[in-house]
């Protein structure tokens, strides 16, 4: 029972890291980026390639996954995304679906359609008993990293100069620009950071979630649930939503496997009917 809770928390933390980049682009920058999963997948595949082809340590792969996907995010933001900030949502949806399709086919072409496996370092494998709760070492590792990241993100967004500049740029880009804030630089940095977090999540999740070319579509719904249910006005909303989703999904799959993903979709639709702007939104949202 507690083990399930623990697994659920690990899963939820992972979802949060995967989705929080999306909650920034979608919530703060108001861009419907369905291609966020593609960045996560890229992070996962970078890890797979580095570990399995070049034998590089797992611990080096994580920052590499972050940096490379962040770079890719920055390049794409500069070249493509930037032009669509003011476009209707339909355009953004179509554009990012196109990106998803391209990434799926490209990965399929380069890496093949099979499930990718990675070999975790020995100290992260297995599980141990703690007060009668079976704790997977790797899951504990994921939880610790994600918790540190979540706290850091929250602090960065609320306490630092960059955080307040970002919030200003998002609330009213024109006024922020008038105040001498370099809005486009902030957007590209934020977008790159969000993509990088997605890549890091993909790298961390390669073992827990599985990795194959359909990753962006398979987990798209999870990311979107986290963001829409959590509301987009803060970091803590998606965080709680991700934890709830993780626990509910793991528990649901364990206790009532025949219902499958049914519960999650039903709960999401219900939440969206009752609270169209998310469970934890402050001011009705935009």
């Amino acid at each position: 029972m507690l083990t399930i809770l623990f697994d659920g928390i690990a899963y939820g933390m992972l979802l949060f890291i995967l989705a929080c980049g999306l909650s920034i682009t979608l919530g703060l920058m108001n861009f419907v980026n369905l291609a966020h999963g593609a960045f996560a997948m890229a992070g996962g595949y970078i890890t797979v390639i580095m570990m399995n082809r070049y034998g590089i340590s797992f611990y080096w792969c994580l920052p590499a996954a972050f940096l490379v996907t962040a770079l890719a995010g920055a390049v794409l933001e500069r070249t493509l995304y930037r032009h669509l900030y003011g476009s209707p949502h339909l355009d953004q949806v179509l554009f990012s679906i196109g990106l998803v399709f391209m990434s799926i086919a490209a990965i399929d072409y380069l890496m093949g359609g099979q499930q990718q496996l990675i070999n975790l370092p020995p100290e992260l494998r297995g599980r141990f008993e703690f007060l009668g709760v079976g704790i997977g070492r790797y899951r504990l590792f994921v939880i610790i990293i994600c918790a540190i990241l979540a706290v850091a993100l929250q602090l960065a967004l609320t306490r630092t100069r960059f955080g307040s500049q970002l919030r200003a740029a998002v609330d009213d880009g024109r006024v922020a620009r008038g105040l001498g804030i370099n809005v486009s630089l902030i957007f590209v940095a934020t977008f790159a950071f969000g993509s990088g977090l997605g890549g890091l999540g993909g790298a961390l999740g390669a073992d827990l979630l599985g990795l194959d070319p359909n990753f962006p579509l398979k987990f798209l719904i999870y990311f979107m649930i986290v963001v829409t249910v959590g509301g987009t006005s803060s970091i803590s909303g998606p965080f709680i939503a991700a934890l709830l989703l993780g626990i509910a999904d793991v528990a649901g799959k364990y206790y009532v496997p025949q219902l499958g993903a049914f519960i999650i979709y039903a709960v999401m639709i219900l939440v969206l009917i009752l609270r169209p702007h998310g469970l934890f939104s402050r001011e009705g949202g935009r």
Binding site: L26, V32, H89, L90, V93, I221, M224, I225, T228, Q258, L259, G260, A261, F262, Y265, A266, M268, I269, L272, I273, P276, H277, G285, R286
Partner: peptide
């Protein structure tokens, strides 16, 4: 149809998407 009355484009995207996934899951199960 009552699901698409409320909320923004994003909410509509999500609810329509969710309904389709829900049906696919029903068929699968």
């Amino acid at each position: 149809s009552f699901l698409v009355l409320r909320g923004s484009d994003l909410t509509r995207l999500m609810t329509t998407f969710g309904v389709a996934m829900l049906l696919a899951e029903v068929v699968n199960q």
